[in-house]
Each structure stands twice: as C-alpha cells, then as structure tokens.
Design a binder for these strands. Structure first.
Lengths: 217, 217
DNA sequence: TGTACATCAGTGAACGCGCGTTCACTGATGTAC
DNA sequence: TGTACATCAGTGAACGCGCGTTCACTGATGTAC
C-alpha cells in the first residue's frame, strides 16, 4: 500500500509514542476515524507494527490519543477565532460577538478539517474513563466563559444560563454534521455563510430572549 | 459467527430484495452503519452471499437502501409525535407546540434507536444521485410545514423563515449526536429531558424573537 | 574504569478473521410454437 | 396440452485484501559492583 515515510538511522526511535500519534492524526485528517489504522501509522513512521505495542495497549488506545488531539485542535481554532475579534466597548455586545465567533469557528473547523472533526466525535465502543463527561471537552470551557460574560454583561438573562452551553453547542454541532455527512452535504459553497449566520442568530436570539418570551410557555 | 435464521423450502426466495434489506436494517439497528454487512444479511435470510448480487449492485447499494429506510422511520416517529399532540385553540400556540413535538421526537428517536439514527446520517463515500439534497429528507417536509404554520399564525416573524429549518434541525441533530457519541454520552438519564427542553426552548425563542431583537445586530 | 547482566525497545513471521466480490455452475420458471 | 429452450435466481468454492494481535527473537541501553 504505502511505503515507509522515514528511514531511521538508529535502532531505537526515541520518541515513538509521539511519532505514532502524529502519523495517526494525519491518517484521521485525510480519512476520518476509519482511516486510523495502527499498522499504517507504524508503516509511516518506519517501524514494525509490533513496535507500537510497546507504547499503546492496542488500537483502541491509539484511537483515543487521536481523538483527544482532535478535540484539542478544535478548541485551539475556537480560541484563535476569539483572539482575532476586535474588542467592543459595550460588554454585552462584546460577549455576544464572542459567542458568534465561537460558533462560527466551530463550524469552520469542521468544514476545514472534516476528517479530524469526525474523529473528535466518533463513536468508540469502549470509552476510556478519562475523557468521559462534558466538562473535560476542551471547547466546553471556552463556551462556558463566554456565556458567563453574557450573563454578567446583561446580554442574557441568568435564568437561561443553565443548559445554555448544551443548547448552543448542539446547534453548531448539528449544523457542522449536517453539512459534512447529512443532507446538506453538497451545498453550493456560497450558501454556507448565510446558513451559519442564521443558525448562530437563532442561538443568540434564543439565549438573549427575555425569560418570559416563550409564546407557548 | 451467526447461523442462518431461516430455512427456505423453495429454491427461489420470492422476495429477496426486501428480505435482505430487512435483515440489513436489523443489523443497523443493533450495530450502526458498520454492522451493515452484506454477507451477514444474506446469512440471516438463509441465502448465499452471491445471491445478493442479483438484487443489489453491491454493498453500497444495500447500504443506501438501509439509510433511506432509517430516514423514513425517523420521519415516521416525528409524524407520530405530531399526531399524538392535543390540538390547541390558538393557532400560534398550536404551531409552537408542534415544533416542540417535532424536536423532541427527533431526539427521542435517536435515543431509542441509536443504531438506526447513526445509519440515517452516516458518511457514505460515494453518494447516490437520488437522495442528495435536503429537500428529499423525509423529515424536512414535516419541519417545513410546521414552520409555515408558525409564520402564518404569527408566532414567528416571516423574516426569520429563510434558513429556519436548517437552524432548528441543527439544534436537535446536534443534541442527539452529542448525547449518543459526544461528550454527553453517559449522562444520567434524568438529565435528558431537561436538556432536550432547554434546547427546544432555545430554538423556539430564537425563531420567535422579533426580527430586531438581536442585541449585536 | 570494566564488565556481567537485567531491562528496554525494537524485529519479522505468522495467525485467524471476515469482508466484498468473481467465477463457473445448476435448479426453477415461463414463454413460443 | 406438450415440449424445447431462453432466462431468471439461486449455489459453493475461491480469491485477495488488510486488519489487529501474538510469538519468540535480537539489538541497544543502563546499572550494580
């Protein structure tokens, strides 16, 4: 299939754990979770498949390492998006703007790195005890901070704060997946930004609406 | 692995296309898209694997049949949810109530039939020319009708109608997947309904908000 | 400063698995005359 | 109403593939004395 990418000079590799993880991440980037193949990662590093077992319990553990990294990269893109925003005078407007940025960054990462995004949220049969729980998802803290700022600045009623991260996250997550694998898969590219905009608008309007605004409450 | 489930009495099966599709759907139900295996479906029907090729071009075509059926079943659950709602006097309240039902039905289907739900939206390498496009998704029409009713009844400003289906769909779709495969995977069951409620609330409030309500417009 | 030896980090061959698919085939069915 | 024959719908064996994993092994490294 594919040839070893690297000719090693010394018998020992020195940093095989990271090298294998890195190769596996590249596989995920270009082919999604199904492309994360232990033997192929070893091949690319220029090492026998068996060597991987000195550093990982098996394929599952390698997979988890890749998944974690994918989530970290997603969070990084969101953080970058936040940092690139010009500050606003009004703290309420500023908080809303950051929420928008977070949402758009999320969807944009999914579109730019579909393989990694799918891997970050792929179904794994037996999950590790570590990463379970929403609070450990790197992007969750970012979202929490921004939502706090929205409450403090008065943009969002405090009564909407509980559950708000899940609701907001759900909207962008769903949009990303509908665009990647769902019925929106082959949308003309110029329809993308409007749809992202409408979805983020809905989130913002939904969270900022006064607590009693629900017409069928 | 598994034994044939059925002993045929006649040489010809009679309805092998449907039988294979049905078996494949059961596989998807219990194991998701990865479990849709042509040989296994044939085994369960009690037929040689080769026989499947008289009825399907290959594994991909069988997969598409299963995917379509999964989407149909999802739409059916949503329709059922709608039909079980008591009618409301006020058309605006009624429309909102139906939107809520649609959203809750969507997420409930995903939780009740995770394998089918994953299959309905699984990534397929080469898509058929038929099902592409959002308008062909069976649940999309339901959603469109309800949103129309919301506009007509005045519950939702007409200016929010474009893109509304995608935004609303994204929210429940994302929630479903976060609950199944994402960081919300092992949530205590009693937290489910509140989260569904909060998410649907956000959708309703976001769509019903006056067109100028966006604090950072 | 040397040297025995335990330990660590690799190797290569092999196993079993189950998949999708192809091949040449045979049994059953239906249609023309 | 029979019968030749084309066509349809199955069969079973086999192929090639690539995977994850195990096994007995060997080369390199570091530590105790």
């Amino acid at each position: 299939v594919s040839k070893p990418k690297v000719q090693r000079d010394s018998y020992h590799h020195g940093d095989l754990t990271n090298a294998l993880t890195g190769a596996a991440i590249q596989l995920a980037r270009s082919g999604g979770p199904a492309a994360v193949v232990l033997r192929e990662a070893a091949r690319q590093v220029g090492v026998s498949a068996t060597a991987a077992y000195r550093h990982f319990a098996g394929h599952g553990e390698l997979m988890h390492a890749v998944k974690d990294q994918a989530q970290v990269q997603l969070a990084r893109q969101m953080r970058d998006e936040l940092d690139s925003l010009p500050a606003e005078r009004d703290p309420a407007r500023d908080a809303v703007r950051r929420l928008r940025g977070l949402g758009a960054g999320y969807v944009r990462f999914a579109l730019a790195e579909p393989g990694l995004f799918r891997t970050a949220f792929c179904h794994v049969e037996f999950k590790s005890e570590q990463d379970a729980g929403i609070d450990n998802a790197p992007s969750y803290r970012l979202l929490g901070e921004v939502l706090d700022a929205m409450v403090v600045s008065g943009a969002m009623p405090a009564s909407r704060r509980p559950g708000a991260p899940v609701a907001a996250w759900s909207a962008v997550h769903g949009l990303a997946l509908l665009l990647l694998d769902g019925p929106l898969a082959d949308l003309p590219p110029d329809h993308l930004d409007p749809l992202i905009g409408v979805t983020v608008d809905m989130v913002v309007a939904g969270l900022c609406a006064p607590a009693t605004a629900d017409p069928a409450a």
